[in-house]
Amino acid sequence: MTQALSKTSASQLTTLKLEMHVLFVNGKFCKNPKIVNADDFFTSLDDTPGNTLNSVGSNVTDVNVDRIPGLNTLGESAARIDFAPLGQNPPHTHPRASEILAVAVGTLYVGFVSSNQDGNRLFAKVLNQGDVFVFPIGLIHFQFNLGRTPAVAFASLSSQNPGTITIANAVFGSDPPISPDFLAKSFQVDKNIIKLLQKRFDNNEN
């Protein structure tokens, strides 16, 4: 019995020592290679859709280093995007990543807008199951479910931390709010419209 306890204690001590020898990279701890296993490179996105009962009718499930520790330092991340019928992923940007989107279920209208210097050109397509579209780094882009049934897409992003800036939330939901007078002049609309938008996007869940 004493020998068994001694072996257990030695094993636990060895594991503790291995776990203590870690590196802090990209804001995350890297596990010691000697105790890494297959589960550190795996996650499951099962058939249960994300909750799309929100104002935009979509849900983004991030697949990043928090979900797959083995992604740390690899410069990649991914996402599953679920869409309710007529749901959308509103105009947004990823400041640190380009994105490749593949449609798994349904039909999506997707697109991005080029920079001011390129004339703010719209590049858009209707995608069906199996279709793939690329959104270049930093450009405003969107997805919209054209169908009357749910849709699912998977995205791959070229950064461990791509960032997401949803345009309406950033402009009208900032904390503290941007001056309504300034925004009214910027958007060339009545200030009351700006105030209405700021009220709508205040503490928005998206």
Rank of each mutant, 00 (worst) to 15 (best):
A4M: 09
N145T: 12
L18A: 14
A84T: 06
G111M: 13
S11D: 10
Y109Q: 15
D46G: 15
N206G: 03
A124R: 09
L71Q: 04
N116H: 14
G138D: 00
N26S: 11
L16S: 12
L13S: 14
D118G: 08
V134N: 15
R80L: 15
K31R: 14
K191C: 08
H94E: 09
D175Q: 14
S114Y: 09
R200N: 09
G130A: 12
E19P: 00
V56R: 04
H21G: 03
V60R: 04
N161F: 07
F154E: 03
V189H: 04
A38K: 07
L71R: 03
N204H: 12
L18E: 11
L101G: 05
F154A: 09
S44F: 08
D202F: 13
N59Q: 04
F42M: 08
G57Y: 01
S58C: 12
G130Y: 10
N51Y: 01
D131H: 12
G50S: 05
I165W: 03
P95F: 13
T2V: 10
A4S: 08
T52F: 00
I100K: 02
S114N: 09
T73C: 01
K191Q: 15
T164F: 01
V132S: 02
I100E: 01
S159T: 02
V152Q: 03
V134I: 15
I35A: 02
P136C: 01
A79E: 00
R200E: 11
T2D: 14
F83G: 06
Q88V: 15
D66R: 03
V65S: 10
P49K: 07
K199R: 15
L18N: 14
A84P: 06
S98A: 14
D181K: 14
V105R: 08
N128M: 04
F135H: 04
P180I: 02
T14V: 14
D47L: 10
T73D: 01
F201N: 00
G138W: 03
T15S: 13
D118C: 12
L139P: 05
N206T: 10
V22A: 13
S11M: 07
N32S: 06
L157Y: 00
P95C: 06
A168H: 08
L139I: 05
D82V: 01
V189F: 02
I81D: 02
N128Q: 13
T107D: 06
F133K: 07
L16F: 10
N32A: 04
N169S: 12
F135N: 06
L197D: 06
I100M: 15
